[in-house]
């Protein structure tokens, strides 16, 4: 393995995260997966939205884009379509991705555009100090759910899959080797990939729900998850309320920007004799 630190912009440090926050673990996993694949740093572009999680990109030594809340995938779509040869990665939080950015998420999945999305899911809005998110389980507490959350949460991986993502996986900040493996595989998928990384927010999720500090939260994450391979052999009662981790879906289908390039080739063949240049708009028919 190469020098992990060389992927970080040391001049952007120190980072803003609280001690024991899981976002650093997920960021480290991404960097290690990139390193394993020997991706060309100059051809990787990492995009994020707004949130504690989204601050990760500023620390990484690539072309990086810290956008507006919820919009990372839309910006990333523009970059990927403009320059399909780039490896485009999105780092997003659960609120960023599934609340304000939910529409962009399902449409990026539907298009199967070649973007690798790492959702750093801490089940809460960290940056704005602990309000419930669409990933906060029912009954859990947040500053805007003082009596317990009445709403149900998404199953992000099911959502990604049904919206059309072609690679879907989940791991956690407890299961780091697995997380690295899955991100590596996701990066290899030409289409839209989603890796949900369950991570701890000790400051708000942990405190508001009396789960405890980083260590207790990691244990809580560990207890709450089962590897999808192990799950196959377990009786249903052992799987109740458990979250599956591992590779959950992997299916090859046409990637959007490649299909668009094929369209360009087809159109250009047809308009081989297209002399029009500027003013030859075919649509100029009254």
């Amino acid at each position: 393995m190469g020098d992990t630190l060389s992927y970080f912009r040391q001049d952007m440090l120190p980072h803003i995260w609280c001690p024991g926050c899981g976002h650093g673990t997920a960021t480290g996993a991404l960097v290690r997966a990139i390193d394993r694949l020997h991706l060309d740093k100059n051809k990787v572009c990492i995009v994020s939205g707004i949130g504690c999680s989204s601050r990760a990109v500023g620390y990484l030594d690539f072309d990086t884009l810290h956008t507006a809340h919820g919009r990372a995938l839309a910006f990333a779509t523009g970059i990927k379509l403009a320059r399909p040869e780039l490896k485009v990665i999105v780092m997003t939080g659960d609120g960023d991705c599934t609340a304000i950015g939910g529409n962009h998420f399902i449409h990026a999945a539907r298009r199967n555009i070649g973007i690798t999305t790492i959702v750093m899911n801490n089940n809460i809005y960290g940056m704005t100090s602990g309000q419930y998110s669409p990933m906060t389980p029912k009954g859990f507490f947040g500053t805007t759910a003082p009596y317990g959350n009445v709403e149900r949460n998404f199953d992000l991986c099911e959502l990604a899959k049904s919206a059309g993502a072609t690679y879907v996986a989940r791991a956690t900040s407890y299961h780091v080797p697995l997380l690295i493996d899955l991100i590596e595989k996701a990066l290899l998928n030409p289409g839209f990939s989603v890796v949900e990384a369950l991570v701890q927010c000790p400051t708000y999720m942990g405190r508001k729900n009396k789960i405890g500090g980083p260590v207790e939260m990691l244990n809580w994450i560990k207890e709450g998850t089962v590897n999808v391979k192990a799950a196959a052999a377990l009786p249903p009662e052992k799987l109740k309320d458990k979250i599956l981790i591992g590779e959950l879906y992997n299916k090859q289908e046409g990637e959007y920007t490649a299909d668009y390039d094929a369209l360009i080739a087809r159109v250009q063949r047809k308009y081989d004799k297209f002399q029009g240049g500027l003013y030859g708009c075919a649509s100029n028919s009254d």
Binding site: C45, L65, T77, G78, L81, Q268
Partner: peptide, 30 residues
């Protein structure tokens, strides 16, 4: 209709927020 003829890209985004965001992304890509 015209952009593919000159090797350009057209995308119908899911809304106008996505539209302008995609344009900013494309502009950053040069």
């Amino acid at each position: 209709e015209e952009l593919p003829k000159v090797g350009g890209k057209f995308i119908q985004m899911e809304d106008e927020i996505g539209s302008i965001a995609a344009c900013i992304g494309a502009s950053l890509a040069g």
